[in-house]
Amino acid sequence: MIAIRAAAAAKLNLYLHVLGRAANGYHQLDSLVAFASAHDLIEVAPGNGFSLSIQGPFALSLLMEDTDSNLVAKAVKALAAALDRPADLSITLFKNLPVASGIGGGSADAAAALRAVATLWGLEPDDPVLARIAPTLGADVPVCLAGRTAYFAGTGTELTPAPDLPESWVLLVNPGVALSTPQVFAARTGAYSDPGRLDNMPATVADLADALRDRRNDLSMAAQSLAKPVTEALAALEMTPGCLLARMSGSGATCFGLYADADGAVAAGTMISRVRPGWWVQPAALVNDVAAVETVGEGDAIAV
């Protein structure tokens, strides 16, 4: 049986500015979003009815939840309903990324599931039904569905393609704490920011780090006030040789360091893992297109 595989790549907010708050209570955002080669993996195949299997190092917390509350299940059932067909699908989620960690997690999984099922059912990648469903699942799902370096505005659903990033590597570090996005936003204090979009995309990773240093993640201080390990993760990254920039992604708690090459990111990961063996530490390349992430293993699977 042919299965379809899709990468649910880690989403990184290279900067994240909170511009204000709308009358409906939602915060207005401005962010440059990139993706890393570290990823979850979705595999879908025709099934007798609907089933969702979850495997991998971060599967346990999801296995303890009701299947219907999983964003993957919500995504594919919403697509099936929109197409007026049964969700007769066998889906496996290989959960390699930490849960509730600021790197897209469930949103990336939902987007990858939409892409995979669309391919299985013969839909074009730009079919409007996918774009209609994505924002109903969460603010990060549209950018994860697009799967390319982009700016987002509004609540995260207004996307503008960004020029390709220079070749860059990151070290992802999660100190083992989960943060609630609403709680982090509620803890944010101080003035709102202006948009921070770059006039031109820097040509080198060093120049990219310089440009990002003039910007920030406006949720970082709030997250640190709720979880001291976020501060510790940022400090650990800053101490590694070759770290050009250390920053938290999204509402945390995952932080990333920016490096010029793979050797620097791997060496930094080894250094941090020795002193913090309980942390999740993952070197990865920044990718401008999620399709560049290799997702085909052994067997008769097709990657999208």
Rank of each mutant, 00 (worst) to 15 (best):
M221R: 15
L172H: 10
P182S: 11
D207W: 11
C144A: 05
S180A: 14
L172N: 04
T204P: 11
N174Y: 09
D210V: 14
Y151N: 02
Y192S: 10
L171D: 03
P202F: 08
R216P: 03
R148M: 05
D194V: 10
S180Q: 15
T181Y: 03
A209N: 06
A203P: 05
A191D: 05
R197K: 14
T149G: 07
T160Q: 09
G156M: 05
D194S: 14
F185Q: 07
G156P: 05
T204V: 13
F152T: 03
Y151C: 01
T189Q: 11
W169K: 02
L145Y: 02
P166R: 01
R148T: 09
N200F: 14
S220V: 02
L219M: 02
R197E: 15
V143G: 00
T189P: 00
P195A: 07
L145S: 01
P202C: 11
N200H: 14
P163Y: 08
P182E: 11
A150R: 03
F185V: 01
G176E: 13
P175S: 11
Y192D: 12
N174S: 11
A211Y: 12
A186P: 11
V177I: 14
D164S: 12
S168K: 07
G176S: 14
D218L: 00
F152R: 00
D218E: 06
G147I: 00
L145N: 06
E158Q: 06
A150L: 12
P161D: 06
A191C: 10
V177P: 10
L145F: 08
L171T: 09
L179R: 04
F185H: 06
D199H: 09
R197V: 12
N200T: 15
P163L: 02
N200R: 15
T149P: 08
L172D: 00
R148Y: 04
G190P: 02
D207T: 12
P175L: 07
A211R: 14
L165C: 10
Y192H: 04
A211G: 10
R148D: 03
M221P: 04
A178W: 09
T149R: 04
A146E: 05
E158A: 11
L172R: 03
T155G: 04
Q183C: 13
S180D: 13
R215L: 09
T157M: 03
A223E: 00
N200E: 15
